[in-house]
């Protein structure tokens, strides 16, 4: 396979390559295409050759008696199997890259709904159907849906992940080339499925900074996570210096929490989400099931704000006894 990038990308037959993952996927793709072409041609050539070479010459002619050749059967089972295993291992390797965001990835939030994509930058800026990102910065997308299943697909980045209602899924990419690339919804989602797309604008970091500085388009201001925390009176129980009624949330993200039934759970986005919407499902050891459900009261975007806020709460000083009234939360929302 010719690796001349200019050639391939000038043809309307090959997608642009604009992320670090793209070349990984393409190399694997070229390998499998080569395997496919080799075997297709091999079979086609043999079939055509035999069909001509052994064509029937007399109406009553019959073929030669057949003998089962076991070593041949084994050979053509084992060799394809070995090639398949190469493809499997290589494919799994690329898959792990695609689904394991690097630790320095910056987190963006994505909410899909019929039929639009809503994005939120870590700095709080929000966009619909357009997403501006800087080159060279790993970006992790935390995604959810307000209605049906969607799928976030950027062909130029070779990434795709389903976006489901009721839970968070993730994808990540690191753009390598400035430009504008398609966003598609790849999971059929109703009437305007084919128009549920948008554009990713990859910018040089300087341009991106400048773009961030511009005034956000006048969309309605969303309450910040901290404001929501107060609005939903979370702070009457979850306050920094007392663990009497509810677990302290500072520094809880990414930790293991011990549950009432003795099992442990990783505090991640999905656990926080469940704990807000269905608080009794997994109670932390030592606490009563006092918290009411917020199902139906908190919207998807508010949930994202709240979770971003809780994630930003850094452990205060040390130990949970220390009062931490003075520590200001590392607020990430606007």
């Amino acid at each position: 396979m010719n690796q001349g990038k200019g050639f391939w990308e000038s043809l309307p037959l090959f997608p642009e390559r604009a992320s670090t993952l793209a070349s990984e996927v393409d190399t694997l793709y070229f390998f499998t295409v080569a395997v496919a072409i080799f075997f297709s041609l091999l079979v086609a050539a043999l079939v055509l050759y035999f069909a001509v070479r052994y064509r029937r010459r007399h109406p009553n002619e019959v073929g030669q008696p057949e003998k089962t050749i076991t070593w041949l059967e084994i050979t053509w089972s084992v060799i394809p199997f070995l090639i398949l295993m190469v493809m499997f291992v290589w494919g799994a390797k690329v898959f792990f890259i695609a689904f394991r965001p690097p630790s320095n990835a910056v987190e963006y939030y994505v909410v899909g709904k019929q039929w639009m994509w809503k994005f939120q930058h870590p700095q709080g800026k929000r966009e619909i159907n357009d997403l501006h990102v800087p080159v060279g910065q790993p970006i992790k997308l935390t995604m959810t849906s307000e209605d049906v299943i969607h799928s976030f697909f950027v062909p130029a980045f070779r990434i795709k992940a389903d976006v489901l209602p009721g839970r968070y899924t993730t994808a990540w990419f690191e753009a390598t080339k400035a430009g504008a690339y398609h966003i598609f919804c790849a999971e059929y989602c109703g009437t305007e499925h084919s128009r549920m797309g948008g554009t990713i604008h990859v910018m040089e970091p300087r341009d991106y900074e400048a773009w961030l500085e511009q005034d956000a388009p006048t969309d309605e201001r969303l309450l910040s996570g901290e404001e929501l925390f107060a609005k939903y009176v979370c702070n009457t129980c979850h306050y920094p210096d007392s663990s009497a009624r509810a677990p302290i949330l500072y520094g809880i993200f990414g930790e293991q929490a011990e549950l009432a039934d003795g099992s442990r759970v990783l505090v991640d986005e999905n656990y926080l989400r469940e704990s807000i919407l269905n608080p009794t499902a997994k109670i932390v050891a030592g606490y009563q099931a006092l918290m009411p459900t917020y199902q139906g009261q908190v919207g998807e975007e508010e949930l994202i704000q709240l979770i971003a806020y809780i994630k930003g709460l850094e452990p205060a000083g040390g130990g949970e006894q220390t009062a931490s009234g003075g520590s200001t939360a590392q607020e990430t929302a606007p």
Partner: peptide
């Protein structure tokens, strides 16, 4: 009426 989530 219980504390468990109704949906569950």
């Amino acid at each position: 009426p219980g504390p468990e989530k109704t949906e569950s």
